[in-house]
Write a protein that binds this DNA or RNA. Sequence first.
DNA 1: CGCCAGGACGCCC
DNA 2: GGGCGTCATGGC
Length: 272
Amino acid sequence: MDYSVAGNDIILHEPDLDLDETLDCGQAFRWRKTASDYDCTYEGCFVDTPLRVSQDGRGRFIFHGVSEQEFLSRWADYFDLSTDYADLKRRFSADETLSKACGFAGGIRLLRQDAWECLISFIISQNNNIPRIKGIIDRLCANYGHFPTAAELARETPDSLAYLRSGFRAKYICDAAKRVNSGDTDLAAVAAMPMEDARRELQKITGVGPKVAECVLLYGMHRTEAFPVDVWIKRVLAEYYPAGFPESLKDNAGIAQQYLFHYVRNLPRKGD
DNA sequence: CGCCAGGACGCCC
DNA sequence: GGGCGTCATGGC
């Protein structure tokens, strides 16, 4: 990890990171791009720890007002800086389609997000589009001043959540909050379970099916073998992987999936 | 206006 | 166990 302390900021050099590609590729919904003199700047949070981070030219990043201690204990982990993405992409590039996807947006990294926040966020994501998902989560966080805890959300009802305009998903949010708050679902325990047990446990929550469970495992628990299949990935699999996704990439299939998702969504037709 | 969205549930066979 | 209609809401 190549970083230095500069006044109140941390300067990071990381060629395998692009903020636009990583923070706006459908894995996290609370980052917003803000005006600045840099190439790009984003503001967001890990749960309730805020961050303003800028990208300045090739592979140079500024973590504004972040101490070395906070950088190392929080943000280095969040941006998965200890994983060698150059090496990952080399392995992915043995596959023709993945090679193109990595060439299209090679600055994607798998964020290590909070499991509870992912659970609620991806319940909201079902049969929904990304701009509207962001809107619902914005209204949720604005109401509390931060992403609500399970205890806070457990007090709500579908009626009291009407302001979210989340439709049929409100009752799912309430069930998830009650289960997590009561300890009926123990997310830390789920994170440590074998994959099949973890999947089964998450799907006990009403409104959590195969896709949402995979998203929680991948984005909120960093289980890189989790492989969420939504309508976009379904198209990729049908078109490019009729014989199935390569077994050799199984351990990091979820990260590969992230490159593929971003690729197909941004090259709707004929891109190849 | 109609089609679609990082799906899951309930019901049917 | 697989197939299909339904579920709110609004982006495009």
